[in-house]
């Protein structure tokens, strides 16, 4: 049963994944949407030469805030888990 489920789910995901890849390949190749606007206007908006940093810390600064909180949480959790517990470890 387990073996069957493993192969079954892997097959399903693989096949659909390949199918999706194939249909993704026919999506328009030029980058447009948000990315184009951001790259075009980065310097006059942010005065930063590195467009990646400009995106990461300005237009998506809130996400970066969240990401740094992820790191903070992970480290706090490690500190909490690896602390000396009540009865020693």
């Amino acid at each position: 049963m387990k073996k069957f489920m493993t192969f079954f789910s892997l097959t399903v995901i693989l096949v659909t994944g390949l199918f999706v890849m194939k249909s993704m390949a026919v999506l328009p190749a030029t980058y447009d949407g948000v990315a184009k606007i951001l790259v075009d206007t980065t310097i006059e908006r942010t005065r930063a030469l590195n467009a990646v940093t400009a995106v990461v810390f300005d237009s998506r600064g809130y996400d970066t805030l969240g990401e740094s909180f992820v790191l903070f949480t992970a480290i706090s959790c490690s500190a909490a888990i690896l602390r000396k517990g009540l009865k020693g470890r």
Binding site: V70, T73, C77, A80, I81, R83, R89
Partner: peptide
């Protein structure tokens, strides 16, 4: 963040 915090709190009573 939620997942990591939840994991950390689950293991809080690490004794």
């Amino acid at each position: 963040i939620m997942t990591f915090a939840a994991v950390g709190l689950t293991a809080f009573r690490n004794h």
